[in-house]
Write a protein that binds this DNA or RNA. Structure first.
Lengths: 199, 199, 199, 199
DNA sequence: CTGTAAGCGAGACGGTACGTCGAGTCTTCAG
DNA sequence: CTGAAGACTCGACGTACCGTCTCGCTTACAG
């Protein structure tokens, strides 16, 4: 039962598998895709998939990371609001496309697969959350953001609405959603100034 | 093939199915539960399930609605912030419990089942969103909330972070998350007033 | 884990399975045949085979019994030698044909499958051995056969050489082998009468 | 792709493979043994087996020949019946032991592997049959055996019943079976002399 | 008050995919 | 430059559920 030797790994097979996984997760869709179908399309034995990945979800996660997700270094122009807008718009654009449904499938699979959930957080979410937090810390130091806030929660406030639409599908993710989220979040929901008779 | 006659429906079987569905979705978990298992535990033929529901998801959705979700009329004490806090805390409390995982399973299933997605929105989400929007409209009229905002987006801003944690599981939903969300959302992220040199 | 209910059994499926099993055991051959192939050719789910039989061997055994093996009531003309010749020639004729190879495959499978071995003995061998023994007993009573012999061993002596050729394939089973076996066995191997000077 | 050079062959590996094959064919049994398992137990790569043998059967055949089967030169005391008894009892003794099951496995494998079948005949059966035939020819010349018989058939008559029990497993091979076979075969099945009214 | 047609528990059916095993081939690396 | 190690493709294994389809058996309405 030793783990397989990664040095002996066939790089061609690996790529073929990731490509097939990505294509099938896009077209018949994540749930409609079987490990068997991935193997067949990749021209690979099923065992070669099970040798290197724990589950279909793990394969698609790797495929998404390698083939679809940009490295996404967080922009820093000095204006945190503009940078957030740039960044969130990028995410929204991605989620609108087929990658969005693939990612939704992944989140779906992670609901009852703790290992996949952890890996997804570590390889997709955490790096981006960290990059965002660093940017927000700089913004705090530059006086562009309240200092008395938990940045993790700020991030959830900004991204939550995006994933809300992706996953509940009450309405599609749009590219102007980010601007509106940012406006709401920075300005706050309190009424502007009370029209008559505020202190 | 006419639809089955609802008057002839066996109420006992219906309840046994919903109960079994709820229990199994809680314990082995939604995805680990099969229609067959529900039928067996409910002491019911599989056909009786397929006669009245389209899928496992549809059964669990009904079960959740009937057995777990409160009617949740939105409170109105006159203080919108307090009311939101009450309401959101209720939701958070529910999501922390096993119902949270069941609901997550449902969201998961809805990712590739348009019909289930629609039903879930109609029976679970929409009524609560509507109640919330009405409350927020009242708040706007009473000057407790900015008028220049899309209420749908406000709702997404408030609830998004809750579901973010439920579905990504980066950290558990907590009962003080709502208070913090509301604080951030109402106060906004802008720095208080710049210490030196603002007009 | 209760056994399936035989009353609910689909007779059509059963026949299709036996026929497919027989055909495939004949053409690609017993060992080259997979349960999967039988299922496919019979237009049947694999589970339907596994529900009613323990193994491929068990299916083929039933197929052989139902489709290929005659009921073979042992003849009784009053002349035991003639009757044995008739009977053994019938067996040899069968073994020469494709049924012979199917049966050989079955014997092969039974080498490491005790349950199959037992069933094969009970359903194929034993009934024929019993019929033969009864005929031989009658022959003994009629003075056509030595009385001081174990009939089981006589049967092995008569049939052993047939199966020797079937299974070792040193030479093919032929239709005149039986006559020769019977001659040898009845006359015995001792020299006729010693030509010169026996005591 | 020339045949591998036998001079370069690693004698240690060869022995380890044969030993492993023999042990595994004895304990988990022939059919339950895989080439992979033999390689692992012998501490040898699978390729090293496939380089020198065509199949598992071929390996076990060699193992049996080299490790289990005596050279068995046919005895000749001048009394053919005694010699046959000696020889057949030796065979029966062997077949009763684990070698018997290994051999049965081999016969089983040979049913659908013509090449193995031929090799088995050539290396195991034929030499012993030849030795036996020579002994029987001498017996014929010495007037201890009918002259008007096909010796091949005599051999089948004598050995057939032994293999009948080995392969059908209706009852175990025993060490007194040979004596009884020989008695039947030499004396013949005809009744002694009819009690009343023979000259 | 009695057919008869529905819903019901049960579970066999044709399928699809699962995750595993082993076959036989091919590649890498150490001695 | 052989041989151990083992990754590869492939095919089949036996199992789990899917959703459909009979089966008899209540059960309740219609004649």
């Amino acid at each position: 039962m030793p783990d397989p030797n990664p040095q002996r790994r066939n790089e061609e097979a690996r790529k073929a598998i990731l490509t097939a996984a990505m294509e099938l997760s896009t077209d018949p869709g994540f749930q409609a895709t079987s490990v068997e179908a991935i193997a067949k399309r990749a021209g690979v034995g099923k065992q070669t998939i099970y040798r290197w990945w724990q589950s279909k979800g793990a394969v698609v996660l790797d495929a998404l990371n390698e083939l679809a997700l940009p490295t996404m270094s967080f922009p820093d122009t000095g204006d945190v609001i503009a940078d957030l807008r740039t960044q969130l718009t990028g995410v929204a654009t991605l989620l609108r496309q087929s990658e969005g449904r693939v990612f939704a499938g992944l989140v779906s699979a992670a609901q009852n697969d703790d290992s996949l959930s952890r890996t997804m957080i570590e390889t997709i979410l955490q790096p981006r959350v960290d990059a965002c937090r660093e940017r927000l810390e700089r913004a705090q130091r530059q006086g562009q953001l309240r200092r008395d806030v938990d940045l993790e929660e700020v991030i959830e406030l900004l991204y939550g609405p995006l994933y809300y639409r992706l996953l509940f599908r009450t309405q599609p993710v749009t590219t102007d959603q980010p601007a509106q989220i940012i406006d709401l979040a920075f300005t706050g929901l309190r009424p502007k100034r009370s029209r008559r008779g505020s202190p």
